[in-house]
Amino acid sequence: MIARVALGGLAWLTLAYLAFPLVVILGASLTTTEFLAFPPRGLTLAWYGRVVADPSYVGAFWTSTWLAALAAASAVLLGLPASLAIARHDFPGKAALAALLMSPLLLPHIVLGAALLQYCVHVGIARTPLALLVGHTVIVAPFVIRAVLPLLTAEQRALEEASMDLGAGPFQTFCRVTLPLVRSGVVSGALFAFISSWINVELSMFGTTASMTTVPVKLLNHVQYQVDPLIAAVSGITILAAAAAIVAIDVVFGLDLLAERK
């Protein structure tokens, strides 16, 4: 009994620890003072108004979003065929290839960012949108592969063979059989890819410029010199967007990740 109460207490303290900083940011973004204050003094949405009126922040939101969307799309275009190759074919060096494609999850992003910067200086595309995009694609592609690969099972293969036996061509089989069966993996992998790209700092900070910068990098540069409610408001927007995305995922997929399997 005592153990159960202690466990519950520790669990709720830990949950509070997880929620607290986000609550503080959201609270501090509502202050009427010129400096950060929590609890906020007075309530106003003026700081949000300033963010929306600041073209550099609006630009950064656009950059982050198209970058994440393109990176997620490229990750699907590369990750889906790679997953199919790994699941459906036997070839020399398959394990090594799978390890190579998954390794961006393991390697320090700062090393990868530095490497890409140096490489892109050689190739002549340093600090261009293309350089940012290829870097983001590399680090988010593993999410797609990890989500799709477990869905490509032997039973599914049987369905594909049945489709071919019944006269469908490879392309038709892919569109009618394979794709619908892995759709949930593609969607969740692409979603993780999009979010991981959107929030990335450690790679992006080597690739951005004053005129082309992502929200996290802009925040990093701002926070290192000045901490004010404007930062809290920008952060608040990203927190609310994340919360909205997660609730949407919860409604669509059911986020009961920790339910016991019966």
Partner: peptide, 9 residues
């Protein structure tokens, strides 16, 4: 959420 935002908190 970006780790910038979380560290900032």
């Amino acid at each position: 959420t970006s780790n910038i935002v979380r560290s900032f908190g």
